[in-house]
């Protein structure tokens, strides 16, 4: 029952957001602010995540395939394909569930419990349009951008790790990566990051928007936003793979 009620409130918040997404002038300024916070400010951490994901995958694949009679280019194929189709979107999604999801939930939660949302409403603002719409839009617009960053740095990290460890020459890595490069994988990765962006920001907005009970309540909704964000990312990842592959 509680779950159904939550689902209902979540859906109606999204419905309100959808309806008020036409009030562009209300959230235009906030949108750009959020695009920077969600997108531009997340670029460094995503670069870091990408580089380490790619390099760790390369080293470990090389280690695992050391004694098998498998061409070295296979490692490039494994690493780049895994990154493009899965890791770039999912790992950055999980990281951003922490970074973006927590920030959004805390921001909105604090605004709720300190009556700032009521203040906005009392001034005649549509608080959903003002607060929720730009955050969700920023999520679905910037996550694909961050997917690109994660992919590029992931594959770059893989090549670099292979080169510096001496396990996979860049030429072999690239040969494998190119041999198994299917544009559909990239489209699929984009789609995933788009969905993840929506999931993280909408759940965080929901949890923050309906936070109650002072500082403790804000903490609780932040935790829930992060945890639920991660869970639903994994769930969505599974569903997308089951439906589209």
């Amino acid at each position: 029952m509680q779950g159904l009620k939550e689902l209902g409130r979540y859906s109606s918040l999204l419905y309100q957001a959808l309806r008020s997404s036409t009030e562009f002038s209300t959230y235009r300024k906030n949108l750009f602010q959020e695009l920077v916070k969600v997108g531009t400010d997340s670029v460094p951490i995503i670069m870091l995540v990408g580089i380490f994901t790619g390099s760790v995958m390369t080293l470990q694949s090389a280690y695992q395939l050391e004694f098998a009679f498998i061409p070295l280019s296979t490692i490039g194929a494994i690493v780049s394909e895994s990154i493009l189709i899965e890791l770039a979107a999912v790992i950055s999604g999980l990281v951003l569930a922490g970074k973006v999801g927590a920030r959004v939930a805390t921001e909105l939660g604090t605004m709720r419990v300190s009556e700032q949302i009521d203040a906005l409403e009392s001034m005649g603002f549509n608080s959903v349009s003002f607060l929720v719409v730009p955050r969700v839009l920023a999520g679905i617009m910037m996550f694909p951008v961050l997917y690109v960053v994660a992919s590029i740095f992931g594959i770059g990290g893989g090549i670099a790790a292979g080169y510096f460890s001496g396990s996979v020459p860049p030429a072999d890595f690239l040969k494998g990566a190119r041999m198994f490069f299917y544009p559909w994988n990239v489209v699929f990765g984009f789609l995933k990051s788009f969905v993840f962006g929506f999931i993280i920001t909408s759940i965080a907005c929901y949890k923050g928007f309906y936070a109650r009970g002072g500082a403790e309540g804000v903490g609780k909704s932040t935790t829930e936003a992060t945890v639920l964000g991660c869970i639903y990312i994994l769930l969505a990842d599974f569903l997308l793979a089951a439906l589209l592959l």
């Binding site: 750009f32 695009l35 920077v36 997108g39 531009t40 670029v43 910037m142 951008v145 690109v148 960053v149």
Partner: peptide, 13 residues
Amino acid sequence: SNEIKVGITVLLA
């Protein structure tokens, strides 16, 4: 400005 930052990020991507 935020617009320019976003623009740069998206363009680069």
